[in-house]
């Protein structure tokens, strides 16, 4: 995926200002930055949820807006934070929706097999018949991830997947992200607020500041005292734990 000169303006003010980057395949890429830096808007635009004002997003060498929505749904999955379902929907039914781009509402045996696999991959067998609105936040998040797995796309886009989760569930969420990449070979792009999760679990980090990319590179390149202090405007200490740079800020 190749992003060139992306611009988004709200009321004449550019929230995303000529952003260009290329997303390496088969890696975990985290977008970080302070509130209002434009990372979620960039995510929205590369996932076609938000219309871009200017610029070009090339997906598999083809303009994203030229893709048929249904075809794109087989290549690229998005999970945002706005997931309040008012319907009575069980976990299994939710996961089954992941097969919608392929089979519509008439599922084939192959679809059922994929759904079963997705459910067991996320260890949801115990609550597959429970209603989504009766689950805890962590379980619900896992159910949505299972749906994304059933959607079987090369690219997975996650908008702040650890939001509202406690340390246990958030950490497990990040381990799952790693597994999606390492075991299932997906390219995962996520927006994260927690820098240490980004540093520990991603391959590349893209740091935003004021609608522009402040730094894009490998974890070691971006997670430095200078870069982070410049972006977040607080003091940072970098420690090396398990071969990864982790940060302390105060």
């Amino acid at each position: 995926m190749n992003v060139k000169n992306l611009i988004k303006k709200y009321d004449g003010k550019a929230v995303v200002d000529s952003v260009s980057f290329e997303i390496p395949k088969g890696k975990v890429i985290s977008l970080i930055g302070p509130n209002g830096a434009g990372k979620s808007t960039v995510m929205g635009m590369i996932s076609r949820l938000i219309a871009k004002d200017e610029g070009l997003i090339e997906f598999e060498d083809k303009d994203l807006s030229k893709w048929k929505s249904k075809e794109l749904a087989k290549r690229l999955a998005i999970l945002t934070q706005h997931n309040n379902v008012q319907m009575k929907l069980t976990v299994r039914e939710l996961v089954s929706f992941g097969r919608f781009p392929y089979s519509g509402s008439r599922l084939t045996q192959e679809d059922y097999d994929i759904i079963d696999k997705a459910i067991s991959y996320m260890e949801l067998e115990a609550f597959e018949d429970r209603f989504i609105d009766e689950l805890s936040g962590g379980q619900r998040q896992r159910a949505y991830i299972a749906m994304v797995i059933a959607q079987d796309t090369e690219y997975v886009l996650l908008d702040e997947p650890t939001n509202n989760l406690d340390i246990y569930h958030a950490t497990n969420m990040m381990k799952t992200v790693r597994k999606l990449c390492d075991e299932l070979g997906k390219t995962v792009i996520l927006v994260l607020h927690e820098i240490n999760y980004a540093a520990f679990y991603s391959d590349y980090i893209c740091a935003f500041l004021d609608g522009k990319i402040a730094r894009f590179g490998t974890v070691e390149e971006v997670i430095t005292k200078e870069t982070l202090s410049q972006i977040y405007k607080v003091d940072f200490e970098i420690m090396n734990i398990g071969g990864k740079p982790l940060t302390i800020y105060y």
């Binding site: 998005i78 999970l79 997931n83 379902v85 929706f97 919608f100």
Partner: peptide, 13 residues
Amino acid sequence: VITLGKDQAINLG
């Protein structure tokens, strides 16, 4: 599909 919300509906094509 639409009852899953706008984002999910678009995601599913």
